[in-house]
Design a protein around this nucleic acid. Structure first.
Lengths: 145, 145
DNA sequence: ACTTGACTTAGAGTTTACTCTAAGTAATAG
DNA sequence: CTATTACTTAGAGTAAACTCTAAGTCAAGT
């Protein structure tokens, strides 16, 4: 198992982020690669793993600033495990709340889509307003929530 | 049933958007109130309904530009119903995809939270890497996806 | 020798969606 | 009379997360 060292160009190709972005992340202290004798960046398998996790964090809505906090805690060692865990839990909660809200909004949009269907097929009254229609839908769902 | 006319200030309070934002939305043609004899804006119940729907649209990730398109189609009358429906379907699909992706990311974060739990309780090996742990979790879920 | 890819600092530009200020006008309520 | 609220245009500021350019250096490969 040899230690793979990737140049920024190779790493960029691998992870799908531009070299601009990688240097930007570095300036924001999100991922800081080692340097070789010529001061060139090189990324290791650890960096690959960390960046993968970082992208999962981003994908749940964590901001760069929050990720930076996480990185700083991580750098302080195991004594900050609880803090890191708490941070992740907050992020998780926020993401779940966000999903729930989006779903509520999607329900209305879905009803509107149905309403267009029925209008096209003249199933509902020509002048049926969406608001009335929505109310009926809500009534139909009584007790199903 | 008298027709309620709301000033921009009243409407602002009602819907929770600043007057700045309302004028901005108007400049972007998202919601265009009528004017009274003194050229002051007034918002009607229709505007209340439309803004409510608009917020649902925003809440599913629709951009202002897309909402503007929707508004323009709406202004062209029933002949654009199919187009509007299609637009909403695209937005819906995108939102559902987004939710699915966020959930996938959340799974990893949840595992990490569990991993912190176990580390704190010394249930897993002191040096157990998260990556190994994740692999085990994946194995445990074989056939459950 | 030359191209390629890396390095640096510093800063400008992009996108989305606001958010606010300035400066002046106008109608209404107390 | 004055405070409040609204109106206008025009433009600046904010925030996040990039994205790119300039200008110059440097080392390795062909």
């Amino acid at each position: 198992m040899k230690e793979e060292k990737l140049t920024i160009g190779q790493f960029s190709d691998l992870v799908g982020l531009s070299t601009y972005t990688l240097r930007y992340y570095e300036s924001e202290e999100l991922i800081i690669p080692k340097r070789d004798d010529n001061n060139r960046r090189f990324y290791t398998q650890d960096d690959v793993k960390w960046l993968g996790f970082l992208l999962h964090l981003k994908g749940t809505g964590m901001t760069m600033s929050e990720i930076k906090t996480y990185v700083q805690l991580r750098a302080q060692g195991d004594s900050t495990n609880r803090k890191r865990q708490k941070l992740l839990e907050e992020v998780k909660k926020r993401a779940l709340d966000q999903i729930a809200e989006t779903k509520r909004n999607l329900e209305v949009i879905s009803h509107k889509i149905d309403w267009y269907d029925k209008k096209e097929n003249a199933v509902i009254n020509e002048d049926e307003s969406f608001e009335n229609y929505l109310e009926k839908m809500k009534d139909n769902n009584k007790g199903e929530a």
